[in-house]
Amino acid sequence: MEYFGSMLALAAPLGLGLAAVGSAYGIGRAVGSAMEAMGRQPEAAGKIQVAMIIGAAFIEALTIYALIAFFMAMGKLG
């Protein structure tokens, strides 16, 4: 049990950090692509913005889920 606890204590912050890095990479790519698309077709800015908002909301939700999972794991650690 002690071994499990120490492994969890190591894995939980590491997992949260990985989720944050993945989300940051995803948002960065999405924003870059949105700017590129808008530069090519400025008249489609509205549609691109909506797609960007939806994508960013989902990516951010992933980070929040990781944060909540982290808190739940930390709760198990006590």
Binding site: V31, M35, M38, A45, I48, M52, A56
Partner: peptide, 10 residues
């Protein structure tokens, strides 16, 4: 988020 995207990505 939608306000931020509308302000920054235009």
């Amino acid at each position: 988020l939608s306000q931020l995207v509308r302000t920054v990505i235009r």
